[in-house]
């Protein structure tokens, strides 16, 4: 290390090796086919998401797309937390609820426009959620899951019991977005940013620390890093995604009620993650695009749709726990080899 005589040659060698490390995993693109192979799936995904509002112009389907986006953010957060940090959070509705109520209060009591309420609710809500979850961070596995499951329930009942924040009626008459296009593209762009941002993050150095916490928290401690601090950062990221979803939801439906703490927001993201394939980050998003429209189509059957996706979830976790996306990725890579031969 630094004790050794660092001559110019040695340093050059090191720099060369640094380049080798950085380029490891990058392969030379020699033909347009290979270029397509790399870029096409991502391009299709981004364009597909961005073109969705054009393909489904009806007001009803616009709403569905927005809802898919909200669930997509929650599912991304769940997948990030569960598969890259090792915390199983059942508290999707906590994030939605806190973000939603915060945005509604800011809008009604302080008269701020959505332009301000959404960023404030996102950051402020994320801070509140992180502070709430902070004491539970040393817990692991079932215990953390139970605490995060309980928070939305207790907030739900406290609002009901104290009759604050509009009680069971909720806060009505929250300002809406100027037009549906703004609404659509806001959520879709945020979803895309969140997806690629998180994908980038987990491969950065700090992302490696997160993965270290998941694999082996004792070794992270022995490496001189505070695991609580890094878990808190991860929870902050996740809850910011969720709180944005909540604030957005409140502004499209123009109401913040205790239904924001409903179990749906905890269960559907998990189901989407299991179906789409945990640990891929794209998978959960696709899972939402599959699951939420189906569940909208089944709305006529009332609570049967919850049965429906619970059963799908159960079937996937029992028989194909890798999920659709992992399967598809494997097939896609096989396809590449097949072309070459």
């Amino acid at each position: 290390m630094d004790k050794n005589p660092a001559t110019a040659e040695r340093r050059k060698e090191r720099l060369d090796r640094g380049i080798k490390v950085r380029t490891e995993g990058i392969y030379a693109i020699s033909s347009w086919q290979e270029m397509c192979y790399l870029v096409l799936p991502r391009l299709i995904l981004i364009l597909g998401i961005l073109l969705l509002p054009f393909m489904m112009p009806s007001l009803y389907w616009n709403r569905v797309i927005s809802i898919v986006g909200i669930y997509g953010l929650l599912a991304l957060g769940f997948d990030f937390l569960a598969h890259y940090v090792g915390l199983v959070s059942l508290g999707g509705s906590l994030f939605i609820g806190v973000g939603g109520y915060l945005a509604a209060v800011l809008n009604k009591s302080f008269g701020l426009s959505p332009l301000f309420t959404i960023p404030i609710a996102t950051l402020g809500g994320a801070i509140i959620c992180t502070l709430l979850i902070l004491p539970a961070l040393p817990l692991r596995g079932v215990y953390f899951a139970i605490v995060t499951l309980m928070y939305p329930l207790v907030l739900f009942r406290i609002i009901e019991a104290l009759n604050i924040l509009g009680g069971t009626d909720g806060i009505l008459g929250v300002a809406s977005f100027p037009n549906p296009w703004v609404e659509q593209y806001l959520i879709l762009v945020i979803v895309i940013i969140a997806l690629f941002g998180l994908r980038r993050l987990v491969n950065e150095d700090i992302g490696l620390v997160f993965r270290g916490v998941k694999d082996n928290d004792q070794a992270v401690k022995a490496s001189g890093l505070s695991i609580t601090y890094y878990k808190a950062i991860a929870v902050f990221i996740t809850s910011a995604l969720g709180c944005f979803g909540g604030a957005f939801f409140v502004h499209i439906y123009m109401v913040a009620g205790i239904s924001l703490f409903a179990l749906d927001y905890s269960v559907i993201p998990i189901a989407a993650t299991v179906i789409g394939g945990g640990g891929t980050l794209v998978g959960p998003l696709l899972g939402c695009f599959i699951l939420v429209p189906i569940s909208e189509l089944l709305r006529a059957f009332g609570t049967l749709r919850i049965v429906f996706y619970s059963v799908i979830l159960l079937a996937f976790i029992m028989f194909r726990s890798e999920g659709v996306m992992v399967y598809a990725q494997r097939k896609y890579h096989q396809f590449e080899r097949w072309v070459k031969v």
């Binding site: 490696l208 082996n216 001189g224 890093l225």
Partner: peptide, 23 residues
């Protein structure tokens, strides 16, 4: 550690990025 505790899902050299990230 007596029982080795590497981060199994990471390549060996990325294992060291975690301690290198410490203050």
């Amino acid at each position: 550690f007596q029982i080795m505790r590497p981060y199994y899902s990471l390549p060996a050299y990325k294992n060291l990025i975690v301690p290198l990230f410490s203050p």
